[in-house]
Amino acid sequence: MTVKRIAFVQELLKFMGLEGRLHLEWISSAEAQKYVDVVTKFTEKIRNMGPNPLRAINEMKKAG
């Protein structure tokens, strides 16, 4: 179920120009190293993508 929803939302976000910001990975509680690797890699990836463009838009809007 999760994989279906995520696959769809990933498509939708891509269409909106927000691709790559959602990721799904199955990690069992026994796979500590995999968890660390995935989270580190994803954090790094998001950091490289720069600040959240939506935050800027919403702040601009609030300021009028």
């Binding site: 994989v3 696959a7 990933q10 990721h23 799904l24 994803f42 790094e44």
Partner: peptide, 19 residues
């Protein structure tokens, strides 16, 4: 809809993370 059916009807694997 596929979002209301649990089971094997759809076999998907999560997309890989490309950096």
């Amino acid at each position: 809809s596929p979002f209301s059916i649990i089971g094997k009807t759809v076999e998907l694997t999560p997309a890989p993370m490309d950096v």
